[in-house]
Each structure stands twice: as structure tokens, then as C-alpha cells.
Design a protein around this nucleic acid. Sequence first.
DNA 1: CGCGTGACTCAGG
DNA 2: TCCTGAGCCACGC
Length: 125
Amino acid sequence: LQPLKIEMSAFTVKVLKLIKSIPRGKVATYGQIAALAGKPHGARGVGWILNSCTKSHRLPWQRVINSKGKISFPRRTEEFREQKKLLLKEKVKVSDDGSITLAVYRWRKTVRKPRTAKNTPQMFR
DNA sequence: CGCGTGACTCAGG
DNA sequence: TCCTGAGCCACGC
């Protein structure tokens, strides 16, 4: 991970890492990424970071969409077409207006909860 | 340190 | 459903 600038906030580092960890064929929302990075209201920050870091960090930027489940770029823009194309290429269904079914394609980050006596399966005890 | 600018989000109307 | 306003966050000046 090559930093664009010498200083990058902890939030930015986390956001970039999270975006890179979204698997092919899945999408996440700006707000979701922000929350996972520790700022439940930092969605705008995520958008800003994407806009400024995509070129230098080779991010799977196409996998980040808005909370309405749509591509955030206006329909006629080159960005919209590119994002849609990239998503279709990885088998994410995108309607003409840029809508994606979050219930189907949303990335659910798997968190490894610390094991306690209660939730430890018998075979691991 | 304040201000303006975004690939944002939510609640109202 | 489609606007608006307000709130929110990062960052460059």
C-alpha cells in the first residue's frame, strides 16, 4: 500500500484497506465502509477518499455504491458507464439506472469474534 | 483555524 | 417518488 501523501489519517488507511478487501462480485456502501472504519457518519469522507486515491492505489472503486443501492454517478457520465461495466464483468447485476440489489450483493464483512467458553464448538474445546 | 467542496445519508414534505 | 436541509467527515487553502 503505497501512500499518496506522506501523511494519511488512520481513517483513510482503514478505508483504503476495507475497500481493497471487498471481494469480487460484492458491493459495499459508502456509509458501510465509513462505519467499519470507525466513523458511522463518515460516508462523505469515504467518497472524498475514493475520488482522490483511486488512481494512485488501484482500488476496486466500482464496488462502492450509495445507501440507496445505486451507482452514485449521474447516468450519462463516463464514470457511470465504466462502473457499471466493471460490475457486470464480475457478475453483479446492475439495472439501467444503476441500481443494484443490496440484499443480494452487499458484502458482509466476516468478523472473527473472540472465542469464549459459551460460543466455542465442542470440537475445539 | 475557518471556509468551501465533495462518488454521502437521513428525515421531511 | 423526487426535491431539500441539515448533519457529517476529510482535506486543501
